[in-house]
Nucleic acid binder design. Structure first.
Length: 332
DNA sequence: AGTCTAATAT
DNA sequence: CATATTAGAC
């Protein structure tokens, strides 16, 4: 009896893994990208007993022991993601799916697109998801739109109150963005319904928003943005397209449209009437260089042509916070 | 179950 | 302050 006990104990003790062996295992419990996302540093930093098997060449690296090739040097490898598949969520095994995307900057152009989308959909259908689809801006997420829509509604409300009550002037920098694109009349008058959908602007299916920040690209883009007058707008496009478009092309082969046909099945609030808008103009996300087929929006409003080149640039706002922006070629 | 919106956090 | 994120309603 007792002998048996000591026996198993001896064996148990003998088979206990050494600390060095434990380390890699416990590390593997936390996937590298997860650790990255949580800003967890390797425990081997600053300890003399480094678990890193420097010269353990006796055994070939087993899959469980695979250590990242210096996953992050230490400084600027936060986003190693060069593949921008965020929205899709497919075709990307890179340890970059958990990373937080850079902050989106709503440029006048992007906002214009937003407004147009809302205008086309009508207030009723103008919900984040639909808007997002209509805008068909690559990399734009539903919450981006939702957040912006929230602010925009606030703005509209304020505008209504202002126009009717005759209040004081308000032009904080906040409103500049919204003021930059014309607010469709019916936005301010919920009563009136834009019975005529036909006067809607046509969309340019350019999807050029991307979500990664390559320093080189940013630098180049920034340089281009710095002197827009020197370079034709298309120049920007080329930069972005060349840098962002190509490498990640495999992600968007399947368009995400075509859900508008079914009136009731989609969960839109009103089962009575639906499908007012033409799916035909629904822009499909693609990252290809489309030739200049831009028509512009609003019918009789001024058409400040020339600024529809939407491009993306990542810049550092403050303290190394990286933001994603489509650069404005000009005010609208 | 998935989406929208209001509120709150960064 | 402009967005992001969360929480709760729908």
């Amino acid at each position: 009896m007792r002998e048996d006990d000591s026996d198993w104990f001896a064996r148990w003790e003998e088979e206990l893994p050494s600390p060095e062996e434990l380390m890699p295992i416990s590390q593997s419990l936390i996937s590298p990208d997860l650790a990255l996302a949580f800003d967890i540093r390797s425990p081997n930093h600053g300890n003399g007993n480094s678990n890193q098997p420097h010269h353990h060449q006796t055994t070939p690296p087993t899959p469980s022991q695979l250590q990242l090739p210096s996953s992050q040097a230490n400084s600027s490898a936060e986003f190693a993601a060069d593949s921008a598949d965020l929205g899709s969520g497919a075709a990307g095994d890179e340890p970059a799916r958990t990373l937080k995307r850079p902050r989106l900057v709503w440029t006048p152009q992007l906002h214009k697109r937003f407004v147009d989308a809302v205008a086309h959909l009508g207030i009723k259908n103008a919900v984040p998801k639909t808007i997002m689809q209509l805008m068909s801006v690559d990399g734009l997420t539903r919450e981006n739109v939702a957040s912006h829509l929230q602010k925009y509604r606030l703005y509209l409300k304020r505008m209504q109150g202002l126009s009717s009550g005759g209040g004081a002037g308000s032009d904080p920098a906040t409103d500049r963005l919204f003021a930059s694109s014309p607010v469709p009349a019916h936005f301010l008058h919920p009563n009136r319904v834009p019975s005529s959908d036909h006067f809607m602007p046509s969309f340019v299916p350019i999807a050029t928003l991307q979500q990664q920040q390559q320093m080189a690209a940013a630098a180049a883009a920034a340089a281009a943005a710095a002197n827009p007058h020197l370079q034709p707008p298309q120049f920007h496009r080329q930069i972005a397209a060349a840098h962002f478009g190509s490498p990640t092309n495999g992600g968007f082969s399947s368009p995400t449209n075509g859900q508008f046909g079914s009136p009731t099945s989609n969960g839109f609030g009103s089962p009575t009437a639906n499908g007012k808008f033409d799916p035909s103009f629904l822009a499909v996300r693609q990252t290809q260089q489309q030739q200049p087929i831009h028509r512009m929006s609003t019918p009789s409003l001024h058409s400040p042509v020339g600024n529809y080149v939407e491009d993306l640039e990542s810049a550092n706002a403050n303290g190394g916070r990286t933001v994603l922006t489509l650069f404005p070629t000009r005010d609208d």
